[in-house]
């Protein structure tokens, strides 16, 4: 990936973040915490909670992509590799105010990691011991990425591999590329 494209994306991310209407980051963090708490109350089993968070994130992702494409200045994500960079440089910045980095590409170039040191969702959070090794508190993000990419015809699987709430040194989401969907919709309805 050329560095000029990377810096263009960085700029787009910064601009999208800078010009957007804002809300208190504390409100987001506290609301997310309260929401996770509600889901834990309903599902109890951490594995189930992780699944539910991913599902809810997916619902968000399929709607969020529209807002992202409309406001970010990104016109298309043509390849998986490019999409991963755009997520970390533009989307993370726009929606979470942080910039992530993409690394850990495998040799087939169909799996990589998005790494971020700060997580605005997990601010003020400490997991009770019984959840430290089972709950992925921010698993919603995995679903958001999966849902958003699906809307641009890219099918992926996402999972957390590192989480600072578990005592890891950073946060890492692994994305595995599955397939590229064929465009189904005709370009022009009138023809």
């Amino acid at each position: 990936m050329s560095s000029s494209r990377a810096s263009t994306w960085n700029k787009l991310g910064d601009a999208a973040y800078a010009k957007s209407e804002k809300v208190s980051a504390d409100l987001v963090a506290l609301t997310y915490g309260s929401f996770v708490r509600e889901i834990i109350k309903d599902f109890e089993e951490p594995d189930q909670v992780n699944k539910e968070l991913e599902k809810l994130g997916y619902n968000i992702g399929i709607r969020l992509i529209e807002d992202f494409l409309a406001k970010s200045g990104i016109s298309n994500c043509s390849s998986f590799e490019e999409s991963a960079e755009i997520i970390s440089r533009v989307a993370f910045k726009m929606f979470l105010g942080i910039r992530a980095t993409v690394s850990n590409w495998n040799s087939e170039h169909n799996s990589c990691s998005i790494i971020f040191d700060e997580n605005p969702l997990a601010e003020y959070v400490e997991l009770p011991p019984e959840y430290t090794h089972s709950l992925f508190y921010s698993n919603l993000l995995c679903g958001v990425i999966r849902g958003a990419l699906e809307m641009v015809q890219i099918i992926v699987e996402c999972e957390f591999v590192k989480d600072q709430l578990r005592g890891d040194d950073t946060n890492e989401i692994n994305i595995r590329f599955k397939e590229m969907l064929q465009e189904q919709v005709p370009w022009n309805d009138e023809e």
């Binding site: 957007s20 804002k22 208190s24 980051a25 504390d26 987001v28 969020l64 929606f95």
Partner: peptide, 25 residues
Amino acid sequence: RSREELYLSTFSFLFAEAVQYLQTR
């Protein structure tokens, strides 16, 4: 150490999903 602000839509998407979730229950 506060990241003072986030994009309004981040909250709106989250809240809308919370309403949807609660509504099914």
